[in-house]
């Protein structure tokens, strides 16, 4: 059974058709890249897969749970238990230290556990910066905290919307190495990116255009925006 199955998913905002008839299957342990021009619906799709928005029509099955008709409360529970999120803007809580930011995620999930949060920071090489506020960390370090936070509750699926979009090349490289390591460890990753070189790291790449899947390339095949345009 696939980890994620989307059938004929559409999303309509008033007159804007952000997504139309999306069919998509993601296997456990797969790394999928999502590309496409601005406004093509990438973030909209991530929000639907991440249980943060309900699709207008279509069916979605995540880890055997069909959440086409779930209530908002159940959507919150699904998101909490199954999804890890990495953002372009990091979204760390500014008045909490690195380790406290991880503990917040534990707090909403189950129980805060400082030792475990410290271990998670150690994994991303930030043990020494655990007591620093986000404003005292560089962009790359903040993104690593964000990755550690995404992993802290053992999610089924990691969603990353342009995780390297706000980083310089050196920091982007460090962050991408973490994603490669996660992939090797068997994590399932869906990552939005504008950078073909980043998309190359994924096994599969789909390109959205005007809310439809316009093109898709499988493992190790270079996937360029230029190709579709």
């Amino acid at each position: 059974m696939s980890l994620l199955e989307l059938h004929d998913v559409s999303m309509v905002y008033g007159s804007v058709k952000a997504l139309q008839g999306i069919d998509l299957t993601v296997e456990k342990g797969e790394w999928l890249a999502l590309m496409g021009p601005s406004g093509s619906g990438k973030t909209t799709l991530m929000n639907i897969i991440g249980c943060m928005d309900k699709a207008s029509t279509g069916s979605i099955v995540l880890d055997g749970v069909d959440f086409t008709d779930v209530t908002a409360g159940n959507l919150t529970m699904l998101r909490r238990d199954k999804i890890g999120l990495v953002f372009q803007q990091f979204h760390l809580i500014p008045y909490l230290t690195a380790v406290e930011n991880l503990m917040v995620a534990q707090y909403y999930h189950s129980m805060p556990d400082e030792q475990e949060a410290l271990l998670a920071l150690e994994r991303v090489g930030l043990k020494e910066r655990a007591r620093h506020l986000p404003s005292q960390l560089s962009g790359g370090e903040q993104q690593r905290v964000c990755i550690a936070r995404a992993l802290i509750n053992y999610p089924m699926l990691i969603l990353a919307d342009e995780p390297t979009g706000n980083l310089d090349e050196a920091n982007a490289k460090i962050v991408l190495e973490f994603f490669q390591q996660l992939h090797r460890e068997g994590h399932t990753i869906i990552m939005v990116t504008h950078d073909p070189k980043v998309a190359e790291l994924a096994e599969r790449c789909i390109v959205l255009e005007h809310g439809r899947i316009a093109n898709w390339k499988d493992r190790r095949v270079v996937c360029r925006e230029e190709e579709v345009s």
């Binding site: 008045y95 909490l96 406290e100 503990m103 707090y107 129980m111 805060p112 556990d113 400082e114 030792q115």
Partner: peptide, 22 residues
């Protein structure tokens, strides 16, 4: 290993929200 209770994390969040956003 000291497990933090939910309650103490709650107060920690509130205190820091007040103190660090003076």
């Amino acid at each position: 290993m000291i497990k933090m209770t939910k309650y103490s994390m709650y107060t920690k969040m509130i205190w820091n929200a007040l103190l660090r956003r003076r």
